[in-house]
Design a protein around this nucleic acid. Structure first.
Lengths: 147, 147
DNA sequence: TATAATTAGTTACATTTAAAACTATTGCTA
DNA sequence: TAGCAATAGTTTTAAATGTAACTAATTATA
């Protein structure tokens, strides 16, 4: 079987990702003037509690300068709090603030609704299969191809 | 069930896409000094024959300025050919050149190998399921959420 | 058929991005 | 423990990106 772009994994994933994100991103952009990076960080902090910028970046595959700038912006708006690590002054723990939580809660509700709506084209079994497959691919990609 | 970022469709897709593309893109960047957009266009033209920049953009979800610049660059390097449409002088048909085809063939081989290696963590049945699910999601996203 | 509206594609401009260089701090090792 | 390597995070710089404005051509309409 010769190479077929249409079924090339990176190509397929990108097309789907671009399509989907273009329909969701206006939600946080328009309502709360958040960039995609800012939304990702806010949501991550809401879920994972105190973490460093480094951890945040690794976890959500964001470049450290991207994280740095988004964190700076969120901090400036008072949506997150910086807590210096006394044991290692190089790093800082980041935490979502009350003000940030209010925004997050509103967005999480809409994100959940969006996700349900998106996944509604799949039956329960397919949804299960999808999760398993994505996880397998993710793990495979990481273990075999990351430096 | 409360909102869980880890299972949020756009988030999951982005992480997987970023991980995977970061392992494949060095292949065309280092060997042939192609940008991701240029590689996508080259591969699209190799597969679909003569198409306009407009079609190319719609098909692969690329912004028209991105297409414009990538096409310009590929043309400058002689990897594609521009053929004016006599019936509508606004648009131009684009075609891969012999020189471009040589590069494409070499990359297609490696892309195929990469894809097989990536998909090898899934059994035949899962691969089939994956294709069906991605297609369903793509179609659902397009029909319900595109302007 | 003249004029307005639309479309394909390019260019100018402002923003966003990543690579590289940098600061500050900690860990390693000789 | 002195000095060198490594790390977290920021800033500088250059490249890539999208928005908006533009050109040139076509289509719609009055």
């Amino acid at each position: 079987m010769p190479f077929n772009l249409k079924y090339f994994l990176p190509y397929r994933l990108r097309i789907l990702y671009v399509t989907i994100t273009h329909t969701f991103s206006p939600i946080y952009i328009k309502q709360f003037d958040l960039t995609p990076s800012e939304w990702r960080i806010l949501a991550s902090l809401a879920q994972f509690g105190q973490v460093t910028a480094k951890t945040l970046g690794t976890h959500s595959r964001m470049h450290k300068t991207k994280v740095s700038r988004a964190v700076c912006q969120l901090n400036k708006r008072g949506l997150i709090t910086k807590i210096p690590n006394e044991n290692d002054l190089r790093e800082t723990f980041l935490e979502i603030s009350d003000k940030g939580s209010i925004i997050y809660e509103k967005l999480a509700l809409q994100a959940e609704e969006f996700d349900n709506q998106m996944m509604s084209c799949l039956n329960k079994q397919e949804q299960q299969q999808f999760t398993e497959i994505i996880d397998k691919l993710q793990q495979h990609a990481e273990t075999n191809f990351t430096e």
